[in-house]
Amino acid sequence: MVIAGVIIDEKIEGMLKEVGVKDSKILSREKREKLFEIISEFAEAYIVNKAYPNEIDSSNLNELTYSKVIQIIYASLPLHPKIVTIDKVGNEDIVIMKIRELGLKDNVVFNADVKYIEASAASIIAKVTRDRIIDSLKKIYGDFGSGYPSDPKTRKWIIEIYEKDKNNPPPIIRRTWKTLLKIAPNYYISKG
């Protein structure tokens, strides 16, 4: 999982909208790559944080996400942000409390990556970073598709590697995926 934060000056918000910065999910990979370069050039800074499969397997996903977001907020403090915009996905009370403790204004809303340019920019940075990580992992592990459990290519890849070795899953697999119970049961572990 890749999470990003982008610090932008209000003066460039219009330009970022004009060049097409919007929620990464509705952009082609080629467009995201171009926008990544523009964002990285004009933003005050961007911060990327990652959660690895073993972290996700041993943690509550929401709590892990909140922890990674708080780390990004702390990393941004030297640049004196005033407002912290976050795409709300669950109960972010811990993040909101931390933002307020730090004397910042919180803007935690559903679909922030659609509604706010800073969240759109962060979604692009995160998605491009994830795409690049996936590309580098494919050089090692072969073409496993998107890496999402809903991807048929990913499931096919897991089945193929499981047939070769039922006891040693590659470290890139989230072992708590329920999908594994059906297609690679020896790889599955419960979060307990």
Rank of each mutant, 00 (worst) to 15 (best):
S76H: 07
Q71R: 08
F42I: 12
K31A: 11
A43V: 01
V48K: 12
E37C: 08
L61I: 14
K68V: 02
R29D: 12
E30K: 14
E33A: 13
L27C: 07
I70M: 04
E30F: 11
K25H: 04
R29I: 11
N60R: 03
L35D: 01
Y46G: 04
I38A: 05
A51H: 04
S40R: 12
Q71I: 04
K68N: 00
Y74Q: 08
I38H: 04
L64S: 05
A75V: 04
V19P: 00
S58M: 09
N60I: 11
D23F: 05
N60W: 01
I73K: 02
Y66F: 14
L27W: 05
E33R: 13
Y74K: 15
E41W: 03
S58V: 10
A45L: 09
I26W: 00
N49S: 14
E44Y: 06
E41A: 12
Q71N: 15
G20A: 09
V21S: 06
Y52L: 12
Y52E: 11
S76F: 02
I26N: 07
D57V: 07
A75D: 15
V21F: 04
N60Q: 06
S59V: 06
R32Q: 04
T65N: 12
E63P: 08
I38S: 00
I72G: 00
V48N: 01
E37W: 06
S28W: 11
E33V: 13
R32H: 09
V48T: 07
E63V: 12
E55D: 07
E44D: 10
I39T: 05
I73Y: 02
I72P: 03
E41G: 11
L27R: 05
V19W: 03
V21A: 06
I72Y: 00
Y52F: 14
E44P: 00
R29W: 10
I39H: 01
P53I: 08
I70F: 04
V19Q: 02
S28N: 05
A43Q: 01
N62C: 10
E37V: 04
I39V: 11
L27A: 05
K31L: 08
I47N: 03
F36K: 12
S28Q: 08
S58L: 14
R29M: 12
T65R: 13
I39D: 02
S58W: 03
A51D: 10
S40H: 11
T65W: 05
Y66K: 06
K31T: 13
S40W: 04
Q71Y: 06
K25N: 08
L64M: 03
I26M: 09
K25F: 03
A45H: 07
K22H: 01
S58Q: 11
V19T: 01
V69N: 00
K50H: 12
A45E: 13
E55Y: 02
K22N: 02
G20S: 02
D57K: 02
